[in-house]
């Protein structure tokens, strides 16, 4: 009786482990593609669910606070891709920040994002004297409002 429960527990453990490793994780070992990699796929990359990662190209952010329409360009230094997203972005979203967007490339070559994530680097810096810590998204909304 006890022995059966042990075996059942081990089977469940092995199953969960296997699922995570080969089902959940394998798909995500390359968690996102860079613009260069996604563009290299050509038409194979259009219309399929994919994650795109890179840096928000400085100066590319356009945010309409009324329609919550957010447009920006993601770059990997080599290639870049226009992204359209809706909804308020995460607090740390801003020019020059790392981002990962989930969605698919539309017919027009614009990446239609259903989910926007900010990717932080491993650097933690205090603001220099006289500089304020950014409270990014508040200022983003204020600055680009109507």
């Amino acid at each position: 009786m006890k022995r059966n429960r042990v075996i059942a527990a081990l089977v469940v453990m092995a199953g969960v482990f296997g699922w995570l490793l080969f089902g959940g994780l394998e798909k995500n070992v390359v968690f996102f593609l860079t613009p260069k990699e996604l563009l290299a796929k050509g038409t194979d990359g259009v219309g399929v669910a994919v994650r795109l990662g890179g840096q928000v190209k400085p100066g590319s952010v356009q945010w309409d606070a009324k329609t919550l329409d957010l447009r920006f360009t993601v770059t990997d230094g080599a290639r870049e891709m226009a992204v359209r997203s809706t909804g308020a972005p995460p607090q740390m979203f801003r020019d020059g920040m790392g981002v990962i967007v989930e969605g698919r490339v539309g017919a027009g070559g614009v990446f239609e994002a259903t989910n926007l994530m900010v990717k932080h680097s491993n650097e933690y810096r205090a603001p220099k004297p006289g500089e304020e810590a950014h409270e990014k998204y508040k200022t983003l909304i204020k600055q680009t409002g109507p």
């Binding site: 527990a9 081990l10 453990m13 969960v16 482990f17 995570l20 490793l21 959940g24 994780l25 798909k27 995500n28 070992v29 968690f31 972005p89 995460p90 607090q91 740390m92 979203f93 989910n115 926007l116 994530m117 900010v118 990717k119 932080h120």
Partner: peptide
């Protein structure tokens, strides 16, 4: 949630850390 915008993603770091927890639990 506030920094990335999501509570959880199945990337290699988060997944492997969850697996570590499951090994402890197992």
């Amino acid at each position: 949630r506030p920094a990335w915008g999501v509570w959880w993603v199945w990337d290699a770091r988060l997944t492997s850390t969850l697996v570590l927890f499951l090994i402890f639990a197992g």
